[in-house]
Every structure is written in C-alpha cells, then in structure tokens.
Amino acid sequence: MNGYAWLGLAIVAEVIATTALKASDSFSKLGPSLITAIGYAFAFWCLSHSMKTVPVGVGYAIWSGVGIVLITAIAWVLFKQKLDLPAMIGMGMILAGVVVINVFSKSAGH
C-alpha cells in the first residue's frame, strides 16, 4: 500500500477515535473509551507506515488539516456544535492549504 493510502487510513482512524473520545464522557463509558484507545493506536500505526514514503512535514500537514475539518464537520452534525462564519472561512483555508500542498508542492513527493 502506498504512503498516502496509509495516511488516509490514519486520518480516518484518528477521526473515529476523536469522535469516540467525545462520546466517552471523560473515559467514563467503556465502549467509546475502548474505541478511542484502539483508534488512536491504529491511527499512529498507520501514520508510521505512511512516513516511510510521505515527507513528515507534508504528512503531518495533511493529517492535521483534514482531521480538523472532518472532526469539525462531525461535531457540527453529531454534537450540534455551531460554526460561525469565521470558523467556516478558517476551515476553507485549511482545506485550501491541503489542496495547495497536494497539487502544487514538489515536497509532497507524489
């Protein structure tokens, strides 16, 4: 599997783990707490595989940027957290940064 596929799996696992972390109610609920621990462990395992071919700075920028946007969208839908205009503009800028890295940067190593 290529590095960006591993990175994609890492992001999905981290988003699931972070969503479960909110649902764990400070680790007081067993099911979500287990999902959190397993999800983060799997996310970092996948991230470590991605780092074999993806430059660390690029990988971390994609990991954090996509993760922030996905978690914010999930929080908006599942937890009814409100997003104001500056938050939405900021999310758009984060996504734009990820696109610029992937489309235009020679550092991305595609």
Rank of each mutant, 00 (worst) to 15 (best):
L30C: 11
F42S: 14
T19H: 01
T18F: 03
F44E: 04
D25C: 02
L34F: 12
T36R: 03
T19W: 06
Y40R: 07
S50A: 15
F42M: 13
S48E: 04
S33T: 15
I35R: 06
K52E: 14
S28L: 03
S50H: 04
Y40W: 13
E14D: 08
I38K: 09
A17P: 02
G39N: 11
G31K: 13
S33Q: 11
K22R: 13
G31S: 12
K29Y: 02
L21W: 02
G39R: 08
E14Y: 00
K22F: 03
Y40L: 11
A23Y: 05
I35V: 15
I16G: 01
I38D: 08
I35M: 07
I38W: 09
S33E: 10
S48G: 09
S50T: 00
L34I: 14
Y40I: 11
D25H: 07
L47K: 01
S26H: 15
S50D: 03
S26R: 15
I35D: 04
A23D: 05
S48K: 10
I38F: 13
F44G: 06
L34G: 06
S28Y: 05
H49W: 09
S28F: 03
A17W: 02
H49A: 13
K22S: 05
S33K: 09
K22H: 06
H49L: 12
A23I: 00
F42L: 15
H49N: 15
L34W: 11
S24M: 08
S33W: 07
G31P: 01
T19C: 03
G39H: 06
T18R: 01
C46L: 13
T36V: 07
E14M: 01
W45T: 14
F27S: 07
E14T: 00
A41V: 13
I38Q: 11
A23F: 06
L21V: 05
F44T: 04
D25N: 07
A43P: 05
V15A: 00
A23P: 00
M51L: 11
S50L: 02
I35F: 05
I16M: 05
F42E: 09
A20Q: 04
A23T: 01
S24C: 07
W45K: 10
T19N: 02
L21A: 13
C46F: 15
L34N: 09
T36F: 04
I16V: 15
H49R: 13
E14K: 00
E14L: 01
T36I: 05
S24G: 08
K52T: 12
K29M: 04
G31C: 08
C46I: 10
L34Y: 11
Y40F: 15
E14W: 00
A37Q: 14
I35Y: 02
